[in-house]
Computed example of a mutant assay.
Amino acid sequence: MSNPNHLPLELLETFVAIADHDGDAAAAGRQLEISQPTVSKRLAALRRLTADGSRPPWLLLKGKRWLLTSEGERMRGVAADLIRQYRRVEAFAAGGSLPSRPEVSLACGQQAAAGFVKGAVERFLQEQPESRIRLSTARAKARIEGVAAGRFDLAVVAEAPAIIRRTARTELFVETLFEDRLVLAANPRPKATWARQWGELPTDRPAAARDLVGLPFILPEPDATRRQQFDQWIYRSTGQPVDVVIETGGWQTILDFASAGLGVALASQSAIDWLDGTRPEELTTRLLAVRDLHPRIVHLIARKIHGQNEPDLEGTAAGLRSALKRMAEVTTIPR
């Protein structure tokens, strides 16, 4: 295989354009102002340079569309970032100037962005008003890969260190911000068939798996780590599958459905506490048996200084890290 570290810029531009246009070669060609046959030739060259028997290709042709593989998804962000950096260098070499405002890139989940991350960003910008922050709410896997590839300076994730290492394919700096317990939340309508069962759940102790059989659940999507752990916990403890009525992404969306009386939400305590700063009065909660379902450990990740267990951060990025840690210290999660 040829060395993928020497990919021509035009191949990376074509790859990113294809990804941005959902695999439509004609649309990518119009954006790049090249013909569709030229797009196809470039993609064939990209495949020769990046894939062999031991490495998967970045793209696969299915019908008339090019689909990103998992490797393509992993490379998409870093390729786009390289192109942006190249254009900045081009502009500077032509007599322009680089942005004078220091920039830091941060990735987190939607709930964190509306919660403690928002508080940290507000505090940080008060201290460093000249700074610029680029905030992404990508999925956890994309956040980890983005830090490893240099797309993000920092990311907030709730994955275990072993999963972070496996996803990043390299050692990253990982530090704990806080523990975030998973709870159940619901607002059953008076005539709901499950209202009585919800009302009879214990309030003086965590609910066991056997207490939950028969309740209609609103859960994260099947590929979410916490969803998989919850499903396995219920089945392992009771031999019964979870009755899922709605599966969706984002803690806030899950809680919105629960507030509407459509089922029992599995959500993090911080998601409930951070909903517009107050918990909806109609939403009641129950604890889960922590010995069976461990709290989410929220981590801050960054690239490492070579040979040291320290984050490779300077200036603006180091300042944002400090602000996130200070805000995490006041994020109180009931034990």
Score class of each variant (00 low, 15 high):
residue 308 Q to P: 04
residue 108 C to Y: 07
residue 251 W to F: 02
residue 306 H to R: 10
residue 119 G to A: 02
residue 280 P to R: 03
residue 119 G to C: 06
residue 159 E to N: 09
residue 56 P to S: 10
residue 150 G to M: 08
residue 84 R to T: 14
residue 238 T to D: 07
residue 76 R to I: 02
residue 255 L to Q: 14
residue 246 I to F: 14
residue 55 R to G: 07
residue 266 L to C: 04
residue 94 A to S: 09
residue 82 L to N: 08
residue 54 S to F: 12
residue 55 R to I: 13
residue 163 I to E: 04
residue 46 L to K: 03
residue 43 L to D: 09
residue 53 G to F: 07
residue 126 Q to E: 11
residue 173 F to K: 01
residue 201 L to I: 13
residue 196 R to T: 07
residue 30 R to C: 00
residue 210 R to L: 12
residue 235 Y to L: 02
residue 301 I to W: 00
residue 268 S to H: 12
residue 249 G to D: 01
residue 256 D to C: 04
residue 83 I to C: 08
residue 35 S to G: 11
residue 134 R to V: 14
residue 289 A to C: 00
residue 18 I to P: 05
residue 83 I to L: 15
residue 13 E to H: 02
residue 179 E to F: 09
residue 323 A to V: 12
residue 217 F to A: 01
residue 51 A to C: 06
residue 19 A to P: 15
residue 151 R to V: 12
residue 204 D to R: 04
residue 327 M to R: 15
residue 211 D to R: 07
residue 91 A to R: 14
residue 111 Q to Y: 02
residue 323 A to P: 09
residue 280 P to S: 08
residue 110 Q to F: 04
residue 63 G to D: 05
residue 28 A to G: 13
residue 249 G to V: 01
residue 91 A to H: 13
residue 97 S to G: 05
residue 237 S to M: 10
residue 34 I to W: 10
residue 329 E to G: 04
residue 193 T to R: 13
residue 174 V to R: 07
residue 127 E to C: 03
residue 3 N to F: 14
residue 92 F to Q: 10
residue 199 G to D: 11
residue 241 P to I: 00
residue 77 G to D: 00
residue 170 T to M: 06
residue 316 T to K: 01
residue 46 L to T: 14
residue 202 P to W: 09
residue 290 V to P: 03
residue 46 L to W: 13
residue 6 H to E: 10
residue 212 L to Y: 09
residue 294 H to L: 06
residue 264 V to A: 06
residue 238 T to F: 09
residue 216 P to M: 01
residue 48 R to Q: 07
residue 319 G to N: 00
residue 261 G to T: 10
residue 70 S to Q: 05
residue 10 E to C: 14
residue 317 A to L: 03
residue 234 I to P: 05
residue 33 E to H: 14
residue 104 V to W: 00
residue 90 E to Q: 12
residue 258 A to W: 01
residue 16 V to S: 01
residue 183 V to P: 03
residue 92 F to A: 12
residue 118 K to P: 08
residue 330 V to K: 14
residue 213 V to R: 10
residue 137 T to L: 07
residue 181 R to H: 13
residue 303 R to V: 03
residue 248 T to V: 15
residue 280 P to Y: 03
residue 302 A to I: 15
residue 152 F to C: 09
residue 327 M to N: 11
residue 133 I to A: 03
residue 213 V to E: 10
residue 290 V to Y: 05
residue 49 L to P: 00
residue 74 R to T: 02
residue 218 I to M: 06
residue 50 T to W: 06
residue 263 G to H: 06
residue 287 L to C: 11
residue 123 R to F: 03
residue 208 A to F: 03
residue 70 S to N: 03
residue 106 L to T: 03
residue 101 R to Y: 04
residue 311 P to E: 06
residue 7 L to R: 13
residue 112 A to E: 11
